[in-house]
Write a protein that binds this DNA or RNA. Structure first.
Length: 789
DNA sequence: GATGTTCCATTTTTT
DNA sequence: ATGGAACATC
């Protein structure tokens, strides 16, 4: 795994505060560390581990459970600096369970080479289960059923327990699908994400000897982000802390943001009830943020009812006021933020990595990305799973999965006709029927394809050929990943298939992705030369999370969701789209508890900022295709306006330095400005837009049309588009770089392209200059123009 | 059976 | 806007 250095320089334990020292010194018995944002929680936990080691606790008796690999890594790195060479187990809950489950797979009816289905795999499996269960999905959907089942598993509800309960419609449907789905998973020797926890929790509950063995094996357990644990996770740590109740959990109820995934905030709120003799430590001193940022955060979170009241204290100096800014639309918002960052880098000596832009949902990163790219501002989008969700990567990995676990039906269905080899939907359906009818896996059914009466000989032959190809491939399973992948690519002629099926000729990114996967395989081979690396590789791939993609060594502006931002910190933070229906999201507005969670999400975002913070919202936002009027988030009303600096769009001729005037009066000066803080639906702008939108295009009043970008049909150029195009004018489109092309670089002069790889912002070209030097450039940022031939 | 077309919903957040 | 699924055509 990559080694990322922590930003915080470790100091010795003398410099811990009294509260921190108290937590560090705690040895036996349960402990609850209520740690506010930026309170040095990771530092406390690592020092405590070091302390335990020092007093003679063997490293293998300690386990630290986190929610992301990133957090585990960070902890590991820090521990390495204060207690080097100690083999303390650190990792995510899911990885911990995956590991236990490998060992005790047979006890839950799995084989040790079981596969972990990712979300799309389990969705496929779900569809098949729904069909097999013969239920109607007329008033529900596969997604809804999946959600109900997921929730059930998180709450340790088994298929049997779900029967016979009085349920709502989609729950009743789910209750019928659930047992079928579980049976199919077992037959496929597979688990979904929830099963990792579910199986382990059941294992511990049903096998007292095993439970006590593991309890004594893991005598000291630490859980990070305890506020985000669900019932299954709760049950797991609880049953590992009976004989040796040395469970130390850290968390902050105010940062509980995974309720939608089954996390139960009561786990942390009731911890003291669960463990009567618990030692509770509150870390309330904040080392991260300027006081004005903390006051804003504090004011906001005070509006929640389900919480433990907590102070946020800091010694830091007062900083610049928090900015609350309104823009005309998302494009202006993105452009302005890009400009602000560019200016700060030029004039204030900031570096790209000092900045982060947070949003409620991934879709909002698009416009920001565009603005950054057009300015040559280096950035990283933190969504680690993206690469592994690309078609070509999923295809190849599906072959890997099938080699590792031939029962993996989802993988087989994915690849049996990829590349196309004449096995169509009908054949697959017959194969599936045969498998279902005889309780076989799809591969076993395929091995007996000549016995399937419904199958034409022609199809049976094709299927047999596929099985033969697969068997040849399987022979490579014990070799290196590189060897396996190369063999696979050759046997299936996959690259040719990609070239043939790619829609536009220019786009060779699928091929570049294949190369990137190859690189990853080689790298994994290098790191884990032992046997069995295929399984380990697939497990690692299955359990990567978005946050894991964050690279703090990289000098780039970071773009991510607030969920992904938890646990991180940046000197300057922008939070975009602080708008009603987005934050809080409209789906969460019915339930006051969910609204509180949304408020906590904003709290998490705000408290990531060290020095400066800007919250912004727009008058209009392009979402789901078209530009719609929006209003500011009700949360903005909860902030102490007198402490903030409010900035309106320039072209409405309004500029308010600070908050006193920020209310009604500000807006009434200009009749055109919408009352963004007013949630009522009858705001002037809303009506105006609606009204105009109903007119046929040629009847649009010219004046209004000119003023409202909202009314410009997609495809026409907006001012923002034009601007961006201009600045890109002389640059070569990314995908136009070809080997042998002659280019010109500002600094190095003329050169020839010798290699191109990567895609999107990572697209890179190697160029040999006339001086003889060769250099690689990220094309999105390099200053390259077309050279003379 | 393969390929192309249209239509549809779908998007909150993620291990 | 995008991608998947259903439908139509070769």
């Amino acid at each position: 795994m990559d080694v990322a250095r922590g930003k915080v320089v470790e100091t010795n334990s003398q410099q811990l505060t009294a509260a921190q020292q108290e937590a560090v010194a705690h040895q036996d018995g349960p402990m609850l560390i209520l740690a506010g944002p930026g309170s040095g929680k990771t530092r406390v936990v690592t020092h405590r581990i070091a302390n335990l080691l020092q007093i003679g606790v063997p490293a293998h008796q300690i386990a630290a459970l986190t929610f992301t690999n990133k957090a585990a890594q960070e902890m590991g790195n820090r521990l390495a600096t204060i207690a080097p060479g100690q083999d303390v187990w650190m990792g995510t809950f899911h990885r911990f369970c995956a590991r236990l489950l490998r060992r005790y797979a047979s006890m839950v009816g799995l084989a040790e080479n079981y596969s972990i289905y990712d979300t799309s795999d389990s969705k496929q499996a779900m569809k098949r289960a729904i069909a097999a269960a013969e239920v109607s999905t007329s008033h529900t959907s596969a997604d809804q059923i999946a959600a109900v089942i997921s929730r059930a598993k998180n709450r340790l509800v088994s298929p049997e327990m779900m029967q016979g309960q009085s349920l709502r419609h989609n729950e009743a449907v789910a209750a019928r699908v659930y047992p079928v789905y579980q049976k199919q998973l077992l037959l496929s020797n597979a688990v979904d994400f929830d099963d990792l926890l579910f199986h382990v929790a059941n294992l511990l509950r049903e096998n007292p000897e095993l439970r006590s063995e593991l309890d004594s094996r893991y005598r000291y357990i630490m859980v990070d982000e305890y506020q985000d644990t669900n019932l299954a996770q709760y049950a797991i740590v609880r049953s590992l802390s009976v004989d040796y109740p040395n469970l130390a959990v850290t968390g902050d109820p105010d940062q509980s943001i995974y309720g939608w995934r089954g996390a139960d905030i009561n786990n942390i709120l009731d911890f003291e009830k669960d463990y009567p003799h618990v030692k509770t430590v509150r870390l309330e001193k904040n080392y991260r943020s300027a006081p004005n940022i903390l006051r804003i955060a504090d004011q906001l979170i005070k509006h929640n009812t389900r919480r433990k009241d907590k102070q946020l204290l800091t010694d830091r100096e007062e900083g610049a006021p928090v900015v609350l800014r309104m823009y005309e639309d998302g494009y202006r918002e993105a452009d302005d933020i890009a400009d602000q960052i560019t200016a700060a880098i030029q004039n204030e000596g900031c570096r790209p990595q000092d900045f982060a832009v947070f949003c409620r949902m991934n879709a909002l990163t698009r416009s920001v990305e565009h603005a950054f790219r057009s300015r040559g501002l280096p950035y990283q989008i933190v969504n680690g799973v993206e690469f592994y969700q690309r078609k070509e990567i999923k295809d190849l990995l599906a072959y890997f999965h099938l080699v590792n676990n031939p029962a993996h039906d989802v993988a087989l269905q994915r690849v049996i006709n990829v590349p196309t080899r004449g096995i169509g939907a009908k054949s697959i359906e017959r194969l599936r029927d045969f498998a279902d009818g005889n309780g076989l896996t799809l591969l076993d059914a395929a091995r007996n394809s000549d016995q399937i009466e419904a199958l034409p000989t022609r199809s049976a032959t094709k299927i047999r050929q596929f099985v033969e190809m697969f068997d040849r491939l399987s022979l490579k399973a014990t070799g290196s990943l590189e060897e396996l992948l190369l063999h696979l690519l050759e046997q299936t002629d996959y690259r040719a298939f990609l070239r043939k099926s790619s829609v536009d000729e220019q786009d060779n990114s699928p091929l570049a992705n294949v190369d990137e996967l190859l690189t990853a395989a080689v790298e994994f081979d290098r790191q884990f030369p032992e046997d069995g690396s295929l399984e380990a590789f697939l497990e690692q791939v299955a359990l990567v999370s978005d946050t894991d993609a964050f690279d703090e060594e990289n000098d780039r502006v970071t773009l991510m969701t607030m969920h992904a931002a938890k646990g991180l910190e940046f000197p300057r933070v922008f939070i975009i789209g602080v708008e009603d229906d987005l934050l809080p999201h409209y789906r969460s507005k019915e339930d006051p508890m969910q609204v509180e969670e949304e408020r906590r999400l904003l709290f998490v975002g705000i408290t990531r900022a060290e020095e400066r913070l800007q919250l912004s919202c727009c008058k209009r936002r392009a979402l789901r295709g078209d530009l719609r009027p929006v209003v500011g988030s009700p949360f903005l009303m909860e902030l102490p306006r007198e402490e903030m600096r409010f900035i309106e769009p320039e072209d409405s001729n309004q500029f308010f330095d600070s908050g006193d005037e920020f209310g009604d009066e500000s807006f009434s000066v200009d009749g055109d400005a919408p009352e963004i803080w007013d949630q009522s639906n009858d705001s002037a702008t809303t009506n105006e837009i609606d009204e105009v939108c109903q007119l046929p295009p040629d009847e649009l009043p010219a004046k209004k049309a000119a003023k409202k970008p909202a009314l410009i049909p997609a495809g026409l150029k907006t001012a923002a588009n034009l601007l961006n195009e201009q600045s890109n004018d002389d640059k070569i489109p990314l995908n136009d770089f070809r080997n042998g092309m002659i280019v010109h670089h500002e600094e190095y002069g003329a050169g020839k392209v010798t290699a191109v790889s990567g895609r999107g912002p990572k697209r890179t070209a190697t160029i040999e200059f006339s001086s003889g030097a060769a250099r690689s450039f990220r094309l999105a940022f390099a200053k390259l123009t077309l050279g003379e031939q």
